[in-house]
Design a protein around this nucleic acid. Structure first.
Lengths: 186, 186
DNA sequence: CGACGCATGTAACCTGTTACATGATTGG
DNA sequence: CCAATCATGTAACAGGTTACATGCGTCG
């Protein structure tokens, strides 16, 4: 039940409508907690029913009305309680690791190597994106504090994770390429 | 739909009953793809219905009968196809990162720091466990090949991921401890 | 008018989690 | 006989995904 709390955190930074929240989940918060608009609308309805948030219909120029949500005292309390709760470390869940394990059982070696290469390239792209974001938005990390410091540190985590993946997949490919079969040299 | 394929991979290494598969998912394969026995039985039933696997009831001494599954030609084909498919990189999904982002909005700083410290300790424990496993089971990595090599490389991934987490959380704590408020020195 | 973007939803489905149910056999 | 272990399930629910539905307003 973390989506409720993700929404509370986002609303605590600034009030928003369902669609605006969806857009935020495509960006910063979405880098470590994604959600579709269907999920968000569903949870917003439940949260309002539970009294965590309240909505106001806001008319717009040249656009349909939107429902802007703000969070209530109850929502604030719920968030505070959740923040203090221990969070179990989510175990690694990787289809790619599964495929690595499956590759040894038959002649699927090359197919899996290709999959790994594709994913490695994707991780490298994402790392580059994160690093650029980091350099642009936080040129002087040592002087950060408050919300900006936390946002920076979370981004650092994304960078470290991507680096970990890249190192792992690189090691995987190197190990298999150094044991190349004769087929490859033909 | 990766659980089916995880089971196929496990069955391809050795035929097994539902409970035996469950035990394997508590160990090696479970390090990157966990599953409960309820899930496994449900999926085994579907896979048998689809003709991916076949079962034989095996009588045992001093124990109830068990249903041992082996995978069929169809199962082999399904696995081969899946292995060659691209696998989207599963995005990071971290409640802990969410809490880091939430900590800046009110006076929840200390509570979240405690949660982070707990999780850091847990990652350190798991890293130690993985490293011991690695040293024990694969003392000479350079000479590995085939299935053992793949198992080793997957374990290396687990180690790298844990290291990444430890570095990240350490950086997080250091950043916040170096900006300690007067409260802490009182 | 028709296509597109904004904005809010519904419905069906799949996966995974939690709790419970059943029966056999061994050991105390 | 009772508890524990082995072994196989059922049922109910929560969360996430995918596809579809609806209505308004602007722009071409």
């Amino acid at each position: 039940m973390a989506l409720e709390h993700a929404i509370l955190i986002s609303l605590s930074e600034r009030a928003a409508s369902g669609l605006e929240l969806t857009r935020r989940f495509d960006k910063s918060i979405g880098f470590f907690w994604s959600a579709t608009h269907q999920q968000i609308y569903r949870v917003l309805a439940r949260m309002e029913k539970d009294g965590w948030i309240t909505s106001t219909v806001v008319a717009q120029q040249g656009r349909p009305d939107k429902k802007v949500y703000v969070f209530s005292a109850d929502g604030h309390a719920a968030l505070a309680q959740w923040l203090a709760e221990p969070t179990p470390n989510s175990p690694l869940r990787s289809e790619l690791a599964l495929k690595m394990r499956g590759a040894s059982n038959a002649d699927h070696r090359e197919a899996v190597l290709d999959v790994v290469r594709t994913n490695l390239a994707d991780h490298q792209t994402r790392l580059g994106f994160y690093e650029q974001l980091c350099k642009q938005d936080y040129p002087a990390p040592d002087s950060l504090s408050g919300r900006e410091l936390d946002q920076y540190l979370v981004l650092r985590g994304g960078i470290r994770m991507e680096q970990g993946w890249i190192e792992w997949l690189t090691e995987y490919l190197a190990a298999h390429e150094s044991r190349t079969t004769s087929k490859d040299t033909a």
